[in-house]
């Protein structure tokens, strides 16, 4: 599986800033990741870690007025997406090859349009094969059935559907053009547990059936364990640990932040008296600490951590950016 033509997406040293009136927010600071065909990568982190910004940068849907990609390349099927002209992005890539599923199904759907029409619209917009209206209709029905909604419901308006059904419609819109990559931005956060389980099971099944690659953005380590092949943990705009699920959940190395994330979760199988949270807060993205960005909150912080930004310590496919494991093996910093 190591041949390079299996490679679907390769992000290299991506840096994104938001410029507000007086301050610059360093949202993504040198993210590198890669994704093979049919693979699922979990992008994990808390609010403000830069997960969504990374995803939006890949799709090139960052707000023009404030956001700026300062550095990096995003290679998708051999093209650097950052250099592709916008009309090519719109016709041919965004929505067609790379689709996104948003967190909030309520605001992702147009409330005054029948759901069937919304799915058909996505298809018509990218209608390269010049499908006849009947064919489009057929494809809509097929996609609805794929996500577990009876095709008769395509005449419903979004408010007539429950939250879980709406998210299924959103997923149907994403799938209708048969993309090769889906970016799912917290797809089940707005749903109840039992509905979440239904939707996740459905996504899992579809991915297997269609062979679509996926970047799953989430804060829930449980969902990652269930769904992903590889995991990237983000903190303050950087990937601080990346590897296969096995390596992240039971590998030899573990970034103290990852340890903190696991410690913050109550264990369902054992009775614990106390949780071990990470003390302190996310750093101010306009004024990030020097050295390791996690150092002010890190229980195992050393002197070097305050000075030098750690590089990756590598073990197989597992990479951890922490001085505890050596970490000093030079890492480009653009400060």
């Amino acid at each position: 599986m190591n041949t390079s033509n299996n490679m679907l997406l390769k992000v290299e040293n991506l840096q994104v800033v938001y410029k507000a009136r007086r301050e610059t927010v360093y949202a993504v600071n040198g993210v590198s990741l890669s994704l093979k065909k049919g693979e699922t990568l979990g992008l994990v982190g808390e609010t403000g870690a830069g997960k969504t910004t990374t995803a939006y940068a890949i799709l090139r849907v960052l707000p023009d007025r404030t956001a700026k990609v300062v550095n990096g390349t995003i290679e998708f099927e051999g093209k650097n997406l950052l250099e592709v002209p916008e009309n090519l992005m719109r016709h041919g890539i965004r929505g067609e090859k790379i689709a996104i599923i948003f967190q909030d199904p309520m605001s992702a759907l147009n409330p005054i349009m029948k759901v069937g029409d919304q799915i058909a619209e996505a298809l018509k917009f990218h209608n390269k094969e010049e499908l006849s209206p009947e064919k489009i209709e057929e494809q809509v029905d097929r996609t609805l059935e794929l996500v577990g909604i009876q095709k008769e419901r395509k005449y419903d308006f979004p408010h007539q559907l429950s939250g879980g059904m709406k998210q299924r419609v959103v997923i149907a819109i994403a799938l209708v053009c048969e993309p090769v990559l889906i970016i799912a931005d917290e797809p089940t956060t707005a749903l109840d547990v039992t509905i979440q389980a239904q939707v996740l099971a459905m996504i899992d099944e579809l991915r297997e059936k269609l062979g679509t690659a996926m970047i799953l953005i989430t804060h829930d380590l449980g969902i990652v364990a269930q769904m992903c092949d590889n995991v990237a943990i983000m903190y303050a705009g950087e990937i601080i640990e990346i590897g296969s699920v096995e390596e992240i959940y039971s590998g030899k190395m573990q970034h103290p932040y990852t340890t903190g994330l696991f410690g913050s979760l109550p264990d369902l199988e054992k009775k614990t008296d106390r949780l071990y949270p990470i003390e302190g807060l996310m750093p101010d993205p306009t004024d990030l600490p020097t050295g390791c960005k996690f150092n002010p909150r890190c229980p195992r912080c050393m002197d070097i951590c305050r000075e030098v930004q750690p590089g990756f310590s590598v073990e197989g496919t597992h990479r951890v950016a922490c001085h505890l494991y050596g970490g000093g093996t030079g890492r480009e910093t653009d400060e």
Partner: peptide, 8 residues
């Protein structure tokens, strides 16, 4: 998205 404002 933006938190931990300068509290000076």
């Amino acid at each position: 998205m933006f938190m931990g404002k300068k509290s000076s």
